[in-house]
């Protein structure tokens, strides 16, 4: 019976999420961002193909110029340029979730969705009609997790389609790496979503939760940059920085082989942040009065 009630609550949340315009605006913007990323790759690859290469030996300054004093490129420059954009094209596919800035869109949508439900009084109404607060919280978490999944799959499919327009060599091993990246990015996105959901449950309005979330993002970034600079100067150990909140996406979207510390940061830390966010968010929601 209780499971059935959770399904009812979830279906109501999904209904409202489906009706939220920001969900579709987010998908469109994501497509635009992915397209622009690949467009840069295509333009770069085309430029590399059309580069005029000179056979002349460079002068003392290492540069060969034409009659208008414009520099000419060597075969080495052309190869480096081609490799750069081929690699960027490949990394764009591997990091499809990250490229699509899912973190950012999920932050906005979760804050709007939860904030609206609080400010419109939907949460108040549902709880007053006997929906348990635990169900209400987890229903929103599951709805947001579904949103992350849909966005991730959408980003992957869009990346795949755009990658196929101008493919670089892609092996079975690469497919394995792609799946690894996708899974890790998804997990990291779920942990990020949990943090923003917690913030939304603490703030209880779209505006303030968005403000706090963006503030959290910016302040954390600044603090970590300062710490990182200080550690660089003093020669201290910087490995622990990747364990901090919202710092796992770069590792998750990298196609490079991951070491034990990185694997720990990208697999264990998301679970830690998910558990902590759910714990704090739920405990507060259970304790506080609903306005």
């Amino acid at each position: 019976m209780r499971n059935k009630e959770f399904a009812y609550t979830l279906s109501s949340d999904l209904f409202r999420l489906k009706k939220l315009r920001s969900v579709f605006v987010g998908l469109i913007l994501m497509f635009v961002i992915i397209f622009l990323t690949y467009a840069v790759c295509w333009i770069g690859m085309n430029l590399a193909t059309r580069m005029d290469v000179t056979e002349d030996t460079p002068g003392e300054d290492g540069i060969v110029v034409d009659e208008n004093d414009m520099p000419l490129f060597s075969q080495q420059d052309k190869d480096a340029m081609t490799a750069l954009f081929d690699n960027l094209n490949r990394e764009s596919l591997m990091g499809s979730g990250a490229v699509a800035s899912i973190e950012f869109f999920v932050m906005i949508i979760v804050c709007i969705f939860v904030g609206k439900d609080f400010s419109n009084g939907t949460v108040r109404l549902m709880v007053s009609r006997g929906t348990s607060r635990v169900h209400t919280f987890f229903s929103k978490w599951v709805s947001a997790a579904l949103l992350v999944t849909i966005y991730s799959v959408f980003a992957l499919i869009m990346s795949g389609i755009l990658f196929s327009f101008k493919p670089t060599p892609f092996t079975g091993r690469d497919f394995g790496i792609l799946m690894r990246c996708f899974s890790l990015e998804w997990l990291v996105n779920i942990s990020t979503m949990s943090i923003f959901l917690m913030i939304a449950f603490l703030c209880r309005s779209s505006g303030s939760s968005l403000g706090v979330s963006i503030g959290f993002y910016v302040v954390l970034d600044i603090v970590l940059s300062v710490i990182s600079t200080v550690l660089q100067i003093s020669g201290g150990n910087m490995d622990w920085l990747i364990f901090m909140p919202l710092q796992q996406m770069t590792i998750a979207s990298s196609s490079a082989t991951l070491g034990a510390t990185e694997l720990c940061a990208v697999i264990i830390m998301p679970f830690v942040y998910i558990a902590a966010s759910i714990g704090i968010g739920l405990a507060t929601f259970l304790k506080r009065d609903i306005k």
């Binding site: 409202r16 009706k19 315009r21 609206k116 439900d117 419109n120 009084g121 939907t122 109404l125 009609r129």
Partner: peptide, 12 residues
């Protein structure tokens, strides 16, 4: 129940 202002999703 109706409590305070009506609890309505304004975008629906």
């Amino acid at each position: 129940s109706i409590i305070d202002s009506p609890a309505l999703a304004l975008h629906l």
